[in-house]
């Protein structure tokens, strides 16, 4: 059975997908008419897409379809030639990955951004440490280690994650567990948009399941997720909507909520065998 959002009420602590979020029509991310060319190669031709709060949007396409370029632009790593990226209505483009993070976009890359020799808690707060209260604590940059541990534990609990003790070193985690920590970090830092580039590509069956269920839970917390995947089964299971890219263009933008789109049809769109009009 495939999960259809809105049909089954799950206990969620965050905003549910069904209810429209406040401000900007619940729009978390908007890509407006973005183009990018590398010399003679046109990677993106006027691509636009919208991502609402709590929505999981899958981005599919063959190699060279422009997915990676688009992800790279959204994460601030690449500057588009034309067009703009808006986070909750605020434009940002080409100011680097730090600007993207500050604007609320967290990108979880395949090679995970965890430090193996630091603990889970240390990793989650790396580069964003909490200091003890008061002017003295902040001036001396006095770490509030207990509060950081508590917050990490609370966040994992909220997301229903069972991980090894948060004092365990990240190096002792499995690939799936690390992926989960990296994703959970995005939630804890209250990112509005989480971009995942092939998050389960190197994972086993159980780890894949764990990551996918976390993706589903993210949407319950109001986080907008952009999921790049080659696996149509995963796309159909977790995504609410799918954008199909082909040769630098967006060739289809389909809702998956009614369950009428099949994996074969998606493959047809990706390869150019069929068009959106054929559906």
């Amino acid at each position: 059975m495939r999960y259809a959002p809105g049909t089954e009420a799950l206990p969620a602590t965050g905003n549910n997908t069904a209810e429209p979020a406040s401000g900007g029509n619940g729009q978390a991310l908007a890509v407006r008419d973005v183009s990018k060319r590398y010399g003679p190669v046109i990677a993106l031709r006027g691509v636009s897409l919208d991502l609402r709060r709590g929505e999981v949007l899958a981005l599919v396409g063959d190699n060279g379809a422009g997915k990676s370029t688009l992800v790279s632009i959204i994460s601030g790593l690449t500057r588009p030639d034309t067009g703009e990226v808006l986070i909750e209505g605020e434009p940002f483009a080409g100011h680097g990955p730090k600007a993207a993070r500050e604007a609320g976009v967290e990108t979880v890359f395949q090679n995970l951004a965890l430090v193996q020799t630091l603990s889970i808690a240390e990793n989650v707060y790396l580069g964003r440490e909490l200091y003890r209260g008061g002017a003295v604590g902040r001036t001396l940059r006095f770490l509030d280690k207990r509060r950081m541990r508590r917050e990490v534990e609370a966040a994992f609990d909220r997301l229903g994650l069972d991980l090894p003790p948060i004092t365990a070193k990240a190096g002792a985690l499995s690939g799936g567990q690390r992926q989960i920590v990296a994703i959970a970090r995005a939630v804890l830092w209250q990112r509005k948009v989480v971009v995942m580039d092939e998050p389960v590509a190197a994972l086993g069956v159980r780890q894949t399941e764990a990551v996918l269920s976390l993706v589903e839970r993210l949407s319950e917390h109001g986080v907008a997720t952009l999921l790049v995947s080659h696996n149509m089964e995963h796309v159909l299971r977790v995504a609410h909507r799918v954008v199909v890219m082909r040769l630098g263009r967006k060739v289809a933008d389909l809702s998956l909520r009614n369950g009428k789109v099949s994996g074969m049809q998606l493959v047809g769109l990706i390869t150019g065998g069929i068009t959106e009009a054929d559906l």
């Binding site: 999960y3 020799t117 994650l161 991980l163 985690l173 269920s213």
Partner: peptide, 23 residues
Amino acid sequence: IERLPMGTIEAVPSRTEGAGESE
């Protein structure tokens, strides 16, 4: 020693009954 795996627990699968049953 540090690289020894820590348990085997991932996340709690939810919503899908298939994964729960078969695995």
